[in-house]
Design a protein around this nucleic acid. Structure first.
Lengths: 239, 239
DNA sequence: CGTAACTTTGAAATAGCTCAAAAATTGTGG
DNA sequence: CCACAATTTTTGAGCTATTTCAAAGTTACG
């Protein structure tokens, strides 16, 4: 059930059997949500964090004029809101982009982990710091990269993150987003996303159709993106 | 010495005398740096975190074409790289924008804190989550806001953050940045920053001259920015 | 007091946006 | 499995916020 979560954690640090047991016993209820539901609202006091088991989640903020900016996408194995443990409430909403299965971990149980498992605490702290690193890379994309490089970056990032949890088939993966949703990640309009996708397709780098990303030339994609996976911290830390 | 750091922490959570003592005894060496120096380089293994006592620091990433994106500014009382404790290395550089005084806290001492002070650990974990919240708000600015709203947001954010640590004089504060440096925060060119600053000045909202921000109409500034300080988590959490 | 760094302004260029409509795809009830 | 409504994708044409390039002022300071 939490296999993908363990895969994600073990891609960066070792976990003892004891720690794995602690995680398993901290997990609570499992829930299913339909696509397109806001499952966590900003500014609501929270008493549990949500672990994504299956599906795609989006952290986003809406502006008054109706524009939306997605600040991070979550793939299976990610905590959607581990940060709510220390923040108590969120500054953004979280919604399902596809049908999702999630598990909860109460803040009470997380507190127990901080009291009994210092190393596991650091592993989870690392997890939220990884989210921040992803935010930073997105800031760079949004602030400085061209539309095509932003798109290429997003596809590259998801290729790595989904690969870690076994959700890629070689250079291809499911990504059930509309072009409008992509545009909300990239700070673009959906019309422009459409043109950028055509451009990437015609260059022979990637194809995005019917909810699937097919990378035809990974080095080219990385070149267009100026992609450096360093910010995903794939190396093993030694406790 | 670490008074501003304590002010920042206590704006969000209570600290026991014991915890304050633990922080004080974890602090190491104090160092001074000239303006314009990169004091922490991406991808270098780190064994200590850096607490900013005085001055302004910038987290930034450079692109191959020479463009730069700043991902966060740090004010006195902030840890510049508390995240290096769990990340071990950074995905970005950190430089001084003004002359700075910093103190170090070794990762060894931080590790001891995670083992002996679970609540203080959560307070520090909160600190890195606050940085992530700031990143998210910048993503929204960079992705969706107009140039003038971005500028107004940055001035509003710094007004709050500097206020917490006693570095504002009413609606005015020191901000020793060039227009080029501002543009690197906002994903704009320095030419456009210049025009936006004129616009804000002519509207009677803010004036930025000779390293000082003078807010003439705070409600107007907030209105232009669509500023909501919720993401700065100013309320007290109850342990 | 000279020089480097920074700010300001102008004019032309452009990446990405807006508006609008057509084409394709997907989902649904019968 | 079909028909059709809704959603999504695609394309076109004109527009605008911001950039680029260039040069002139201004400020800081060694």
């Amino acid at each position: 059930m939490i296999e993908r979560h363990l895969l994600k954690l073990r891609a960066r640090d070792s976990l003892s059997a004891e720690e794995e047991r602690a995680i398993r016993s901290a997990i609570g209820e499992v829930r299913d949500h339909q696509a397109g539901r806001t499952i966590i609202r900003a500014n609501v006091e929270l008493s549990e964090s949500t672990l994504l088991l299956d599906g795609l989640l989006s952290r986003y903020k809406d502006l008054r004029n109706g524009q939306r900016q997605v600040t991070e996408l979550h793939v299976p194995g990610d905590f959607a809101d581990l940060h709510s443990f220390t923040l108590k409430r969120l500054d953004h909403d979280i919604m399902t982009l596809t049908p999702c299965r999630v598990a909860t971990m109460s803040h009470e149980n997380l507190k127990r982990i901080t009291e009994e498992h210092p190393h596991l605490t650091r592993v989870y702290w690392f997890g939220t710091n990884l989210d921040a690193a992803i935010h930073r890379e997105w800031e760079v994309s949004l602030g400085r990269r061209t539309a095509i490089a932003r798109m290429a970056n997003l596809f590259s990032e998801l290729h790595v993150r989904l690969g870690i949890v076994g959700l890629t088939e070689g250079n291809s993966y499911r990504l059930d987003l509309t072009q409008l949703e992509l545009s909300e990640c990239l700070g673009l309009t959906s019309v422009h996303v459409n043109r950028v996708l055509r451009d990437l397709r015609e260059q022979g780098a990637v194809e995005f159709r019917s909810g699937r990303v097919m990378i035809h030339d990974l080095p080219l994609l990385h070149r267009i993106a100026e992609f450096d996976p360093g910010y995903l911290y794939l190396e093993q830390r030694s406790r």
